[in-house]
Nucleic acid binder design. Structure first.
Lengths: 172, 172
DNA sequence: TTTTCCATGTAACTCGTTACATGATTTC
DNA sequence: GAAATCATGTAACGAGTTACATGGAAAA
């Protein structure tokens, strides 16, 4: 339901047409979602059928006509409910990066460390990129800051792990 | 490909039959994956067709026959490649919890804080559960520790956020 | 005149889940 | 005799992605 919540959030701020929504998702919300264009269109249609949004064809000048979406009262209610549920709970995440750790013992300790040092590099680079991003206004800044916080945490954890592996290697 | 890597990792340690694999996934690896039973069977069949594993029907006593999977040399090579790639890189994650933050401004500041305090509670509970889990041996311990590290980081971040929101509320 | 931008979608496919189906054996 | 455990799967569905399809307007 969080994809629906995301779309409802955008439409709560202001009415928007599909293309505009996709632009916003790709430009400003790339850090918190990977919602694709066809998925967005599909969900918007679904929400229109559910009565959460209305569609209105608008043509401005000679441009291709836009389909403008607006929240209905039912949509507003759904938005509030989904938002409350999202903010008040925590949804756990599975890390792709954890999978490789299961088989760490299949490698020579030294080799494992070399690989994890590369991962540390990738994390450091991602962190720098995130920190270099232009500041976002409003509540979008929280997402950017969360991302930075998380990447820093992952970097610290990876370094901790490297230290522990070094000690085990020396100790055995 | 990380689901395949996970299965290959298990079979690298020792040969296993399907039921055993599913048990292990649910008991010991619930923290790092949600791979379901039919998916596991499906992937095992696929890997058998690819020549990564062999299947052997084994019957022991009067029990239902087991289908035992073993890595082939090709499977071992695939395992090494996937493992190297996984450990040396970082795969970014999208947080469901971020979605609600997009629309924080749609709520009264005080209401937003109340909801986020509930989330903080949920995070604290999850952290305690993770910390109370019996220690895992071998490299599985890293996954448990990573989970704990991450939950602690999320808790700290949520508290930071609550502080910032309090200041904004007072300042404006 | 060719590429990029605006603006919309559909169709086919992949991946994964849920629910269903089977059947013997051991434990209560 | 009933319930849980061992052990395997399939079939139908749903969600999401990729690639395809269309077409006008502006910019290079």
């Amino acid at each position: 339901m969080s994809r629906e919540l995301l779309l409802l959030s955008l439409l709560h701020r202001q009415e928007m047409h599909g293309y505009q929504i996709n632009e916003f998702l790709n430009r400003d919300l790339a850090a918190c979602t990977d919602l694709k264009k066809p998925t967005a269109y599909f969900l918007l249609n679904k929400m229109a059928q559910q009565g959460w949004v209305t569609e209105e064809e608008v043509r401005e000048g000679n441009r291709p006509p836009r389909r403008v979406y607006r929240l209905t009262p039912a949509g507003e209610a759904a938005f509030q409910e989904l938002l409350h549920h999202n903010l008040s709970s925590h949804t756990p995440v599975y890390f792709d990066d954890d999978i490789g750790l299961v088989a760490l013992e299949a490698l020579l300790p030294q080799e494992a460390r070399t690989l994890l040092e590369q991962r540390r590099g990738a994390l450091a680079a991602a962190l720098e990129t995130a920190q270099a991003a232009p500041p976002h206004g409003g509540s979008l800044q929280w997402i950017v800051q969360h991302r930075i916080h998380h990447l820093a945490s992952e970097l610290a954890w990876t370094e901790e792990l490297l230290e522990k592996l070094k000690h085990i290697e020396q100790g055995s």
